[in-house]
Amino acid sequence: MKPPAFKYYAPTTVEEALALLAEHGYDAKPLAGGQSLIPTMNFRLAAPAVLVDLNRISDLSYIRAADDGGVRVGAMTRHARVERDALISARAPLVHETMPHIAHPQIRNRGTYGGSLAHADPAAELPAVTVALGGKVLARSQRGERWIPAEEFFIGLFTTVLEPDELLVEVALPPLPARTGWAFDEVARRHGDFALVGAAGVITLDDRGRCADVRLVFMGVGEGPVVAREAMNILKGEEPGEEAIRAAAEKASQADIDPIGDVHASADFRRHLAKVLARRVLTKAVERAQS
């Protein structure tokens, strides 16, 4: 298994990278951590004519406190760094909790936050978590830049709204409001495998203990992160007790998702897992919001 030939560029600045993407358009593919792109090339499922390697652009690797109390993550920040970062665990604890679920240590040493979002694998953790947190991404091209809400960024299987000349350069995660709890969980055959189903939950309680805001997002049950709107509507404004959570999880598994069956799990089993995971993450999120 050897990748097909390509022309390789290793720009050291974002501007150079943008010029290369503008010049080569659909023929070019940015190379981030390479933990999905390179196996795809080894299998010859992908054969980009031009690779624009982002690994020498040191300006794209950072984790910074944002003025709004949130956090900004450079697109080329590696998973291993995010996993160990104190600012992430303080300001985006849901991301911190999710990191150990992403593949294996060797993969996390190369894989990047921006790469995971731009690749848009429907079974990937970070797209779902970023959508659950209400994050947004900054896309830059020679034409300018634009902020894209994560929820609008993913439009299908391995597909995002990025244009061929655009580069995802930064992820912004907003601050968590007071009385907010979060949780992530997934079920995989073996730790580090692609999960069969995963769920991320974020709940903000009002001062009377009712759900002021609820976010429940699945991975592995659709063509991208799936926002469980019906389930969220059941909980919104309600007291998130055991019964309400059970009802929301049931609704999520029936009305919000339409999973496919494959060799790894039947559609019914995925629905079952979605229900169990929704209940677990919502329960945990409420506990954390209350403490």
Binding site: Q35, N42, Q106
Partner: peptide, 24 residues
């Protein structure tokens, strides 16, 4: 496996373990 699953090709890259089949 040459697609990042088996880990047999793991080497240290600047001190950190990586799969050498998933880098050029």
């Amino acid at each position: 496996c040459e697609h990042g699953v088996c880990g047999a090709c793991t080497v240290l890259f600047d001190g950190q373990p990586v799969r050498s089949c998933l880098m050029f």
